[in-house]
Simulated scan of single mutants.
Amino acid sequence: MDPQLRGDRATVSVTAREVEQAGNIREFLGDERPTLSIQAAGSPETSLTVPAELTSVILQLVDLVGRGCTVTVGSIPAEVTTTVAAQMLNISRPTLMKLVREQRIPSHKVGAHTRLSSRDVIDYRRAQLARQSKAFDELRALEEQWDITD
């Protein structure tokens, strides 16, 4: 595993051996979400229990590596500009500003500039995807109900 570092991102291409190792871990764990402990090499009395939230991130990484995926890890600042938030949502900045004015996404002012919490933007995106998925499911149900085929 040789990460390519670029700013606040690291991209890791995995080897066949690493895919096998991650697969072994996935197979060992099955569907369980265990508590993980880390032990310092050469110091069996020194160990640390990994918090559940971080364990979830580690297990997601192991799952991706086990499937042979190239993994990119990046960071998002806690607070973003309207331009960045619009890019995160894949909408125009004027559309984002309309959502801010309608108070559909929380924001605050820093001087004359509008800033948004990246957590609020991510939560809005998740809700947007859930709404889209629900609408798609309803459309599929109507197609089945009316026996519409391609």
Rank of each mutant, 00 (worst) to 15 (best):
L142N: 07
Y124G: 02
A40V: 14
L59R: 09
R17W: 09
A22I: 06
T35F: 01
L36S: 04
K98R: 15
D63H: 13
R104Y: 00
T70W: 00
C69G: 06
L59Y: 07
D147V: 06
F136D: 09
P34T: 07
V121G: 03
E79Y: 07
A127C: 00
D147E: 15
S47N: 12
G111L: 04
I105Y: 00
R6S: 12
A52M: 08
R131Q: 13
D123Y: 00
T70N: 02
Q103C: 05
L5Q: 12
R33T: 10
L5F: 10
S118P: 06
T72M: 08
S13Y: 04
P94V: 05
W146C: 06
P94A: 03
N24H: 12
I25D: 03
Q128W: 13
P77R: 13
R67N: 15
G68Y: 04
T55D: 01
P51S: 06
L29S: 01
G30W: 01
E45R: 08
R115S: 05
K98I: 08
N24V: 05
S13N: 10
E102M: 10
E138I: 02
T81H: 06
G23P: 04
Q39A: 06
S37D: 08
I122W: 09
L139I: 09
A41P: 02
V57G: 00
G7F: 08
D8R: 14
P94N: 08
L142W: 10
S37W: 05
T114Q: 13
G7M: 07
M88R: 08
K109Y: 08
R17F: 10
S37Q: 09
L54M: 11
S107Q: 02
S47C: 05
